[in-house]
């Protein structure tokens, strides 16, 4: 049952992300990206990591929604986006890289035999508790650094977007030269 679910999810995820890369319609690309992100949380649920699965779901639902907002601003959603032809060297390099990745993927079971959990879940701890324990003991400093980084990014975002934030956009006077001429 689990094997079947794993292969179902994997095939769907890879298929959807392929659509994301290959499709020239912005709506298909973003929808398949969102669906793939949601399905990845299915893999977490299969592994028993319910908490991480739900976090994946919530975070990426919001993130891809913001991406949609940009897609709406820059592209015609129902049309086809015209793409440049990619140069041959890029294709060659990316092709080679994918071949290497494929080899690693197929070699993974051989390496995977030696993998064991560095911080196994304590007995009796529920899923969020186990994540919290590791996060606030072993990985406290990376966690705090990430928090500070997000704070910096938030303040930077506010400053970048905050010019003239105290004025109402609809009441702001048109500052283009044409209107000045009209006044005179």
């Amino acid at each position: 049952m689990e094997t079947f679910a794993f292969y179902l999810f994997s095939i769907l995820i890879i298929g959807l992300f392929t659509v994301t890369v290959l499709s020239r319609n912005i709506l298909y690309a973003m929808t398949s990206l969102a669906a793939g992100m949601v399905l990845i949380s299915g893999l977490f649920f299969l592994l028993g990591a319910d908490f991480l699965g739900v976090v994946q779901l919530i975070v990426y639902v919001g993130a891809v929604m913001a991406l949609y907002a940009f897609g709406m601003m820059f592209f015609d959603a129902t049309g086809v986006v015209k793409e440049n032809n990619t140069p041959a060297t890029t294709v060659f390099l990316l092709g080679g890289l994918s071949a290497v990745v494929l080899v690693v993927i197929f070699a993974a079971p051989a390496i995977g035999g030696n993998v064991h959990a560095l911080y196994p879940t304590p007995d009796g701890a529920t899923n969020p508790q186990a994540v919290g324990l590791v996060l606030f003991t072993k990985y406290l400093i990376p966690f705090e650094v990430a928090a500070v980084m997000l704070l910096v990014a938030m303040i930077a975002g506010i400053i970048l977007a905050g010019k003239k934030m105290d004025k109402s956009l609809s009441r702001m006077k048109d500052e283009s030269p044409a209107s000045e001429k009209d006044v005179k």
Partner: peptide, 13 residues
């Protein structure tokens, strides 16, 4: 055991 997050996440989706 993460019911409330699941419900909110699904409603968001």
């Amino acid at each position: 055991d993460i019911g409330i997050l699941f419900v909110l996440g699904m409603m968001a989706a």
